[in-house]
Design a protein around this nucleic acid. Structure first.
Lengths: 202, 202
DNA sequence: CATGGATTTTGACCCGTGTCAAGTGCCAGT
DNA sequence: ACTGGCACTTGACACGGGTCAAAATCCATG
């Protein structure tokens, strides 16, 4: 367990395709997980918030499946597999915890995929914000006031939309009085409205 | 490990919300994994083919996250966790294998989600068929001639489309000479065309 | 405080897909 | 074989969101 490592904005925490030798936990800052297709288009798999773990997909093939890049100055710790494996043998609790983390990531991904497929653009953006809010709260940060460390384009590529549509959705929510938007600073005024729209409404 | 269990078409292998106490491997037949939202709409997470494992998402919360129902008469085996856990302690190879399986499921789900978000309707159906073909081949079944055990509606709810659109996509492929469709029987004539369209083309 | 570049917003237009509605084909039961 | 029901196909139309283009805003730099 190596703590206190630092990364400037834009630098990569994990390079896609390199050998998987560790898991990472983001301590402060944030990162985006993405892959670049042959045609050069970027697909954003998701975003990593403080307290969250990255690198689990690497278990699939012993190589990291996607690039993870800091969106702002970010600190993290690294958990080498060489340290993790002996512990997994001894501690059944840790074994269960790792399985739970993987299961959670899988479950979340499945859920998200299904929802993205069945929601319109506004529903997707609403769910994105509600999800972000929930995860921030989980880590003791404000669930109603936060800064989006990712660009509109990143959000769009994550949700399968265009940045214009994301912008329009935010505009609609603002006009409805559901939130404040000042550049990348968001204040949720009626989180329950967003949650219910992102929920299973449509 | 309990082998040789049988299930008639339509019966559930796993009930959503029940305690997770085992993993399952489908031996013959097929199943669909789905969840029903509050509003009663069904979201199809995916399909299980012979040789594939189900129940991994249950690790997230100790309860199965979705319903798994047989699409045709299906046989399977059940791997109780009480048998699995002691083995996980002793066999580091099995530990790695379970992690690999989970990582694979996670990776596949992430990849699929990103692709669904960036593909048009035909691309999604093409990718669905290509994926099915690949998985059938992996298990020694014909990758070019097979029966779809799921309805058009199931495919649509899986891909985030309507059944009409799925039908039209198949019609287009048929007219292009890429495949034969007779009810649920599919013959791929130009698999590479489908693969390239489902790939990262658009 | 001024400047320039990047990011975001807004507008106009068009295509793809959802929706609604018939029509067709497939299978099971009588 | 006939019939009814269900799954699937096909057609017409409307609308959401992608695309292209321009304006506005933000932010870092001198």
């Amino acid at each position: 367990m190596e703590r206190g490592r630092q990364l400037p904005a834009g630098a990569s925490l994990i390079h896609a395709g390199t050998r998987m030798d560790a898991l990472y936990v983001v301590r402060s800052g944030s990162a985006k997980r993405y892959a670049v297709s042959m045609s050069g288009t970027e697909r954003v798999h998701g975003f990593v918030l403080p307290g969250e773990i990255v690198g689990l997909e690497g278990f699939a093939s012993d190589r990291y499946a996607c690039e993870v890049a800091a969106l702002e100055p970010t600190s993290y710790c690294r958990i080498p597999l060489t340290r993790l494996e002996p512990l997994l043998e001894q501690l059944s609790g840790l074994r269960r915890e790792v399985l739970r983390l993987l299961g959670e990531a899988l479950d979340e991904s499945l859920r998200l995929r299904a929802e993205l497929g069945m929601c319109d653009a506004r529903g997707r953006v609403a769910r994105f914000l509600a999800d972000l809010s929930r995860r921030l709260e989980l880590r003791g940060l404000s669930p109603t006031q936060f800064r989006l460390s990712m660009s509109r384009g990143d959000i769009a590529r994550h949700l399968g939309l265009t940045l214009e549509t994301v912008s329009r959705a935010l505009g609609t929510f603002k006009r409805s009085g559901w939130l404040e938007v000042r550049a990348r600073y968001i204040t949720l005024l009626r989180p329950e409205a967003l949650a219910s729209m992102g929920g299973y409404a449509s």
